[in-house]
Protein backbone atom coordinates (compact mmCIF):
# COMPACT_ATOMS: atom_id res chain seq x y z
CA UNK A 1 0.00 0.00 0.00
CA UNK A 2 1.33 3.36 -0.94
CA UNK A 3 1.00 6.09 1.64
CA UNK A 4 3.87 8.17 0.39
CA UNK A 5 1.65 10.41 -1.75
CA UNK A 6 0.53 13.81 -0.57
CA UNK A 7 -2.35 13.37 1.92
CA UNK A 8 -5.84 13.68 0.46
CA UNK A 9 -8.81 15.30 2.16
CA UNK A 10 -11.64 12.96 3.11
CA UNK A 11 -14.95 14.26 4.37
CA UNK A 12 -17.23 11.86 6.19
CA UNK A 13 -20.86 12.95 6.53
CA UNK A 14 -22.74 11.01 9.16
CA UNK A 15 -26.46 11.59 8.65
CA UNK A 16 -28.14 8.74 10.55
CA UNK A 17 -29.32 8.43 14.13
CA UNK A 18 -27.52 5.84 16.26
CA UNK A 19 -28.68 2.25 17.05
CA UNK A 20 -31.54 1.96 14.51
CA UNK A 21 -29.10 0.97 11.77
CA UNK A 22 -25.39 0.42 11.30
CA UNK A 23 -24.58 3.51 9.25
CA UNK A 24 -23.16 5.64 12.09
CA UNK A 25 -20.80 2.77 12.97
CA UNK A 26 -19.75 2.24 9.32
CA UNK A 27 -19.03 5.92 8.93
CA UNK A 28 -16.97 6.02 12.10
CA UNK A 29 -15.01 2.86 11.29
CA UNK A 30 -14.21 4.12 7.80
CA UNK A 31 -13.06 7.48 9.15
CA UNK A 32 -10.81 5.90 11.77
CA UNK A 33 -9.29 3.62 9.13
CA UNK A 34 -8.67 6.67 6.95
CA UNK A 35 -7.01 8.58 9.77
CA UNK A 36 -4.60 5.66 10.23
CA UNK A 37 -3.40 6.34 6.67
CA UNK A 38 -2.47 9.84 7.74
CA UNK A 39 -4.98 11.50 5.48
CA UNK A 40 -6.76 14.72 6.32
CA UNK A 41 -10.18 13.82 7.74
CA UNK A 42 -13.22 16.03 8.24
CA UNK A 43 -16.10 14.46 10.15
CA UNK A 44 -19.47 16.16 9.81
CA UNK A 45 -22.64 15.32 11.71
CA UNK A 46 -25.68 16.38 9.72
CA UNK A 47 -29.44 15.68 9.71
CA UNK A 48 -30.34 12.85 12.13
CA UNK A 49 -26.62 12.18 12.58
CA UNK A 50 -26.55 14.86 15.27
CA UNK A 51 -28.54 12.51 17.56
CA UNK A 52 -25.33 10.47 17.87
CA UNK A 53 -23.86 13.31 19.88
CA UNK A 54 -26.45 13.46 22.64
CA UNK A 55 -24.95 13.04 26.11
CA UNK A 56 -26.19 10.38 28.57
CA UNK A 57 -26.49 7.54 26.05
CA UNK A 58 -26.55 4.06 27.52
CA UNK A 59 -27.22 1.18 25.13
CA UNK A 60 -26.76 -1.64 27.63
CA UNK A 61 -30.49 -2.37 27.53
CA UNK A 62 -30.59 -2.87 23.76
CA UNK A 63 -27.59 -5.19 23.44
CA UNK A 64 -25.55 -2.53 21.64
CA UNK A 65 -22.32 -0.76 22.30
CA UNK A 66 -22.88 2.83 23.37
CA UNK A 67 -21.88 4.83 20.31
CA UNK A 68 -21.07 8.00 22.19
CA UNK A 69 -18.06 6.31 23.78
CA UNK A 70 -16.77 5.32 20.36
CA UNK A 71 -17.16 8.85 19.01
CA UNK A 72 -14.65 10.05 21.55
CA UNK A 73 -12.04 8.01 19.67
CA UNK A 74 -12.26 10.50 16.80
CA UNK A 75 -9.91 12.79 18.65
CA UNK A 76 -7.60 9.94 19.71
CA UNK A 77 -7.09 9.11 16.03
CA UNK A 78 -6.11 12.68 15.29
CA UNK A 79 -9.38 13.71 13.67
CA UNK A 80 -9.70 17.18 15.06
CA UNK A 81 -11.97 18.60 12.41
CA UNK A 82 -15.24 17.35 13.97
CA UNK A 83 -18.08 19.49 12.70
CA UNK A 84 -21.79 19.70 13.36
CA UNK A 85 -24.27 21.39 11.07
CA UNK A 86 -25.85 24.05 13.24
CA UNK A 87 -29.18 23.90 11.43
CA UNK A 88 -29.47 20.14 12.07
CA UNK A 89 -29.11 20.77 15.81
CA UNK A 90 -31.49 23.71 16.01
CA UNK A 91 -34.20 22.07 13.92
CA UNK A 92 -34.10 19.13 16.35
CA UNK A 93 -34.25 21.34 19.44
CA UNK A 94 -30.77 20.31 20.54
CA UNK A 95 -28.35 22.81 22.03
CA UNK A 96 -24.56 22.59 22.23
CA UNK A 97 -24.91 22.02 25.98
CA UNK A 98 -26.78 18.73 25.27
CA UNK A 99 -23.78 17.20 23.51
CA UNK A 100 -21.14 14.69 24.59
CA UNK A 101 -18.21 16.99 23.90
CA UNK A 102 -17.56 20.46 22.53
CA UNK A 103 -17.94 20.59 18.76
CA UNK A 104 -17.31 23.06 16.01
CA UNK A 105 -20.56 24.34 14.50
CA UNK A 106 -20.84 24.61 10.73
CA UNK A 107 -23.27 26.93 8.98
CA UNK A 108 -25.16 25.89 5.85
CA UNK A 109 -23.23 28.52 3.93
CA UNK A 110 -19.97 26.69 4.74
CA UNK A 111 -21.18 23.31 3.44
CA UNK A 112 -20.34 23.96 -0.19
CA UNK A 113 -16.75 24.91 0.50
CA UNK A 114 -16.34 21.88 2.78
CA UNK A 115 -17.42 19.56 -0.06
CA UNK A 116 -15.46 21.58 -2.59
CA UNK A 117 -12.23 21.29 -0.63
CA UNK A 118 -12.58 17.49 -0.24
CA UNK A 119 -11.02 14.92 -2.53
CA UNK A 120 -13.44 12.22 -1.38
CA UNK A 121 -16.80 12.36 0.37
CA UNK A 122 -18.26 9.39 2.22
CA UNK A 123 -21.90 10.12 2.88
CA UNK A 124 -23.71 7.81 5.27
Amino acid sequence: MSTTKKPKTFTFISRSAPYGNNRPRLCLDAALATAVFEQKVNYLFMDDGVFQLLANQNADGIASKTLGNALETLELYGIDQVLVLEESLSSRHIGSEDLLFPVQLLQNSDLQSLIDSSDYVINL
Partner: peptide, 11 residues
Protein backbone atom coordinates in the same frame (compact mmCIF):
# COMPACT_ATOMS: atom_id res chain seq x y z
CA UNK B 1 -9.75 -4.88 6.31
CA UNK B 2 -11.03 -1.36 5.86
CA UNK B 3 -7.52 -0.26 5.00
CA UNK B 4 -8.16 -1.72 1.55
CA UNK B 5 -11.07 0.68 1.12
CA UNK B 6 -8.93 3.67 2.07
CA UNK B 7 -6.14 2.44 -0.20
CA UNK B 8 -8.68 2.08 -3.02
CA UNK B 9 -9.90 5.64 -2.61
CA UNK B 10 -6.42 7.13 -2.41
CA UNK B 11 -5.33 5.33 -5.56
Amino acid sequence: GLGQMVDAMIN
